[in-house]
Design a protein around this nucleic acid. Structure first.
Lengths: 350, 350
DNA sequence: GTGAAAGCGCTAACAA
DNA sequence: TTGTTAGCGCTTTCAC
């Protein structure tokens, strides 16, 4: 009761008025000072900062967002935070966002559409200024809500015709062609491909690029050597076993991602096969872990940092240009082959 | 211009007034309906929900937070999102939080104090209702700001005397004693320990538990067999190499975490040593990856889900009891040994 | 059970 | 350059 007697003596967290009172200025001046408006005199500005420090004042972002209409929050949705590729990506994205004064809301879809819908709802309620959907193909069903709310979106490998939607194109082709050429040069002609799930755009693109790469070096594409896996360790194990069950087996396996490749390495080891002497393996992503597999994995590098930069940049441009006519943009992120120790010439014919 | 002529016809995102108008009720009734206040009649409630749906209305959380003083945001700060233990932990925590209607702000300290301070500032500005600091020992310098703002905190393995600070105690002892006993039973007497950084509480606790476990089975503790690493793959490699440089070498290595153990496995492989025939290795955490190492890693399981539950529960209790006298709480999360294939009897004497 | 009205803490006109 | 003031969209007394 006593505490509520007067505003000024209450020991609640200080607000902009408290700062203004202590600095003997108006609240507008405090607001201008905090937001770096160029008109405040040095004298007052100094008094204000001093008062802020003295009171240990923190501006209330909710009030700020409410009146300004800008939340300074960005959303990022990934497929599966448990695949090491994504934490590394999130980390990059957050660093960039924080450096630009944005907060990040992270969420993973886990390939669950209901989950995704809830996430979108949460993000809309929090008034995010943009969403990076790095789910590589699961986004279509929910895109609509975001588009209706005119929230800028950036997608990977999927074009959507709306002025608020930008796209990041991933040039897998360069890396995959280099990988296949590398294998061919080592003398491999029997090359298998462990694909990702066909409902993921990036998986389909990767598989297509594998096909054209094989054609480019005049190597046969065998249907039973292209197997759909699920981008997980277990998927790699399963894919390897299917290949082993075949009468005619490949001498090299290119995998749609690193996790699959690591699964293959493990499965091969358990079967008593040596990588790379008995079997060459190449991954895709170059997650931090790839360097530490046994043997260290040769892989196609897809830079998380490049991807994160592109995603942030796409969103920032759209959000901060809200006045001018919005337009879609396209960004390109490239890939490259990283040579380590999981490839070698094929074993001599038995 | 034309668009701004009147509020009612403007095509901006609908607000509570628009819903009230369409449902022909007051905004208070809309608010009550949304928040499930028990007084609204079925008839009006139905009209309101119908209007909400028709307008595709989403309540503005910033306005909500501003007036209610509750943001329904929780913060979680981890040491390093790149260690697979943490994404799994974050995932669990977020799921629980979302299920209870909370949003989560994620951040990793990356062992950078300046970073941590910024993070805390961001979280205070966003008015988080609680922070889970799962940094295992880097939290002290910034605890103060949070405490001043009376924000509920939950810490791992560190007690702090303040009514807003709860603690999760981790019972490493059970798991570590089981691991050492398992090794002793296999016939090992030369057991090394690759510790974590000494400025991390959990690392110190784990090391101490290793010592008491060794005493419990009457095995000698050798100083040069206890090496401080850094909980990373590289650290494990380095630790292994230091051990190999010794004249008298251990036959088994217990590691302070899984990443270290995986580093050891890799380094041993490169040296031509076989795990477990030549060297037994045990990890701690049981990250998802542990099951897929070569060979599958025997490790001490620390449940991410249990930890996440404890952390959320601690925060929720503190946040939702704000009226009644707050009190510190303690939670306990236990560990257990998971037997896989990286341990075996020591090699016969040469 | 329902509505009217007073703010929550801040930004952005507009005045001075 | 600085101050005054009108809301941002919502929750919550307080009347009815």
């Amino acid at each position: 009761m006593a505490q509520r007697a007067t505003r000024k003596t209450a020991d609640k967290t200080p607000d902009i008025r408290a700062v203004a009172a202590l600095a003997k200025v108006s609240i507008a001046t405090v607001s201008r000072t905090i937001n770096g408006a160029p008109v405040v005199s040095d004298k007052l500005s100094k008094r204000v900062w001093q008062a802020i420090k003295q009171l240990n004042y923190f501006p209330n972002t909710h009030a700020r967002s409410l009146v300004s209409g800008r939340s300074r929050i960005l959303g990022i949705i990934v497929e599966n935070i448990t695949n090491p590729f994504f934490p590394e990506l999130i980390q990059s994205f957050e660093e960039i966002a924080v450096a630009h004064g944005y907060e990040t809301l992270v969420s993973s879809s886990n390939s669950n559409p209901a989950n995704l819908a809830t996430t979108i709802r949460r993000m809309i309620e929090r008034k995010v200024e943009g969403v990076a959907m790095l789910t590589f193909g699961e986004e279509e069903p929910v895109l609509n809500q975001l588009v209706i709310h005119e929230i800028p979106i950036v997608l990977a490998e999927f074009r959507f015709d709306d002025p608020n939607v930008s796209t990041i194109l991933l040039d897998y082709k360069t890396g995959i062609h280099a990988a296949v050429a590398h294998l061919a040069q080592l003398g491999h002609s029997k090359i298998a491909f462990l694909a990702g799930p066909h409902d993921i755009h990036s998986a389909v693109t990767r598989e297509n690029d594998f096909r054209t790469a094989m054609e480019a070096v005049n190597l046969p594409i065998r249907k039973d050597w292209i197997i759909e896996c699920d981008h997980t360790l277990k998927g790699g194990v399963a894919g390897f076993e299917k290949l082993q069950a075949l009468a005619d087996r490949p001498t090299a396996i290119l995998c749609s991602n690193d996790m699959t490749a690591i699964g293959v390495q493990r499965a091969a080891y358990l079967k008593g096969m040596r990588v790379p002497q008995d079997l060459s393996v190449i991954g895709l992503d170059d997650i931090d872990f790839a360097e530490f597999t046994l043997p260290p994995l040769t892989t196609i590098r897809l830079s998380r940092s490049d991807l994160a930069h592109a995603a942030f940049e796409a969103l920032r441009q759209q959000a901060e240009e809200s006045a001018s006519p919005k337009k879609q943009r396209e960004f390109l992120v490239s890939t490259s082959l990283v040579l380590r120790s999981s490839t070698a010439p094929p074993p001599a014919k038995a």
